[in-house]
């Protein structure tokens, strides 16, 4: 009946946000969401495995704080120019995660944090090329990306 419960709920919430919250729209939205998730089931995508879903709010909070901080940092770089010793550079980072959903979430986190951009991922080497705008110490960046995000993602999806 419900092959993808998360997708069904997300579609229903989207329907109710776009329309008014009434009983009629609740029924219509449920019908649309259930049919759409059956359509999705016909495509047979891999089901994402959420293991420790209760860690998701923690990840979300960390990312929110980091996005605000790097927004201010990048604005400073743009308006004032870089301080001496900082430079833009490419970082090649070997990854331990290989779940597609986890990789997608990681890409969204890295790109929506201004100051770092996810350039290309090589699935054979399992490494990603990242461009950093304001780099001081490369090892510090690697350490931060590895320990701050990747560990959490490894725990959540596996």
């Amino acid at each position: 009946m419900f092959p993808y419960p998360l997708l069904t709920i997300a579609l229903l919430v989207m329907w109710l946000l776009l329309n008014d919250f009434t009983l009629g729209h609740l029924l219509l939205g449920s019908i649309v969401a259930v049919f759409a998730s059956w359509g999705m089931a016909a495509l047979r995508p891999d089901k994402p495995k959420l293991r420790k879903w209760y860690l998701l709010p923690k990840l979300f909070a960390i990312v929110m704080v980091d996005v605000i901080r790097s927004n201010l940092a990048v604005s400073w770089v743009i308006l004032r120019g870089r301080t001496r010793g900082h430079h833009a550079s490419f970082i090649n980072l070997p990854l331990d995660i290989d779940d597609p959903t986890a990789l997608a979430v990681f890409a969204v986190i890295i790109t929506s944090t201004p100051g770092s951009a996810w350039l290309e991922y090589d699935s054979r080497r399992r490494s990603v090329l990242i461009h950093v705008l304001d780099l001081i110490d490369e090892d510090e960046w690697r350490d931060q990306l590895k320990n701050r995000y990747e560990k959490l993602l490894l725990e959540i999806f596996s």
Binding site: V67, N71, V74, S75, I78, A88, F90, T111, S112, T113, P114, G115, S116, A117, L119, H131, L133
Partner: peptide, 12 residues
């Protein structure tokens, strides 16, 4: 590659 960072300010 540096310019690619700037529009993410307005998208975040």
């Amino acid at each position: 590659y540096e310019r690619i960072h700037a529009p993410t300010l307005s998208t975040s």
